[in-house]
Amino acid sequence: MGIIKKVSVILLVLLLGAGGFYIYSRTGLHPTKTAGQEIDQFNGVAVYYNGEVGNVKGRNLAPDGYNLGLKYQCVEFVKRYYFEHLNHKMPNSYGHAKDFFDSRLANGKNNVDRNLIQYTNGSSTKPRVNDLLIFKATEFNSYGHVAIISAVSDNEIDIIQQNPGVLASSRENFKLKKHRGKWRIQNNQVLGWLRKE
């Protein structure tokens, strides 16, 4: 077999493997978890398994009718966390994860749709626990993603999240770096963070 055929076979195997993993990770097939099952919690607020990333189990409303979001998407967790743990209602209770970040705002200004202070990744203000972390849309996820910062040190942050994918963890860690007075989370998908003052 010539070198071109060998390389072609290797590339085909890699492509099929990657494609198979991508499909598996979005099918909701998990040997031990079912959609709606509690898999984690932070400050007494549950994180639920969603199965397939696009899976929706209806809309979750607070007892007073406030829209918490679609079960069990990432937005539903962070809004429920802010409502239950921080007693915060967002003026605009709708929108995808990427919509939580207003790119027109200057760093440190009030995001009126969320009634939270917004910081751009690369801010002089360091992230802190309970901040919302917003990720931009990608080719594979046009809605973006949002999580809660659960721990912060001088060189890393931890997050807790709902609906990160079938095989992904509800917890994740990112490097944090201060350079020339600016704090940057070392992930190119991070737009910034929102904070209740």
Rank of each mutant, 00 (worst) to 15 (best):
I39R: 09
G65L: 00
I10N: 03
Q73L: 05
W193M: 01
G54S: 14
K89T: 14
K79V: 13
R195W: 00
I117Y: 11
N87M: 04
V78Y: 02
Y94D: 11
G181S: 08
S8K: 15
V129D: 07
Q41K: 12
I23R: 15
R59T: 07
N121R: 06
I4N: 13
Y72D: 01
F100W: 10
R104D: 10
N115K: 12
N110L: 15
D102R: 12
K98S: 04
F101M: 01
V129T: 14
N87C: 01
P164D: 08
G51L: 01
L176W: 02
A97R: 06
V129S: 09
R26T: 08
A151W: 15
F42Q: 06
V112C: 04
V45A: 03
G28Y: 15
I4E: 09
G95I: 09
K182A: 14
W183D: 07
N110Y: 10
P91W: 11
Y143L: 14
E172P: 07
G144K: 10
F83K: 03
Q41G: 09
F101L: 01
Y72F: 06
K136R: 14
G165C: 07
I134Q: 08
P91Y: 11
V45L: 05
Y94R: 15
G144C: 12
P91K: 09
M1L: 03
G58L: 04
P63L: 08
A147C: 10
H96E: 13
Y94W: 14
T32V: 10
T125H: 10
G58I: 08
M1T: 08
L68W: 09
I39L: 03
G122L: 08
